[in-house]
Amino acid sequence: MFDKLTLRKATQDHADRIWEILQQAILKRKEEGSTQWQEGYPNPNVINDDITKGIGYVVFHSENNSIIGYVVIMDDIEPTYNELSGGKWLTDGKYVVVHRLATAQDVKIKGLGTWVMQQVENVALSKNITSIKVDTNFDNDGMLRVFEKLNYVYCGEVFFRGGSRRAFEKLLV
Rank of each mutant, 00 (worst) to 15 (best):
F159C: 07
C155M: 05
F147H: 10
S66C: 14
M74V: 10
S34M: 02
G33V: 05
K108D: 08
W37S: 00
V153L: 04
K170C: 03
E83Q: 15
E39A: 00
S126D: 15
Q23W: 12
K94T: 08
S164L: 15
D16P: 03
E83A: 14
P79N: 08
N43H: 11
I109R: 07
L125F: 06
S34F: 01
I77Q: 15
V173Y: 15
V116H: 02
E121N: 07
K88Q: 10
K30V: 00
K110T: 13
E39S: 02
Y154F: 15
I47Y: 09
N137E: 14
G56E: 03
V146Q: 03
L90R: 02
E20K: 14
G40N: 03
T136P: 00
Q36G: 00
D92M: 06
T35Y: 01
K149V: 11
D141C: 08
N137M: 11
Y81G: 05
R8W: 12
L22K: 00
D135T: 04
K4V: 06
D49Q: 13
E20S: 14
Q24T: 03
I51S: 01
R17S: 05
N128R: 13
S34V: 01
N65A: 12
T136C: 12
F147N: 06
N151S: 14
K28Q: 14
Q36Y: 01
W19Q: 08
K170R: 13
M117Q: 08
H61G: 02
T6I: 09
R161S: 10
D13G: 12
V98P: 03
G156N: 04
D13P: 00
N48L: 13
L112H: 09
F168Q: 04
L22V: 13
A25T: 02
E20H: 14
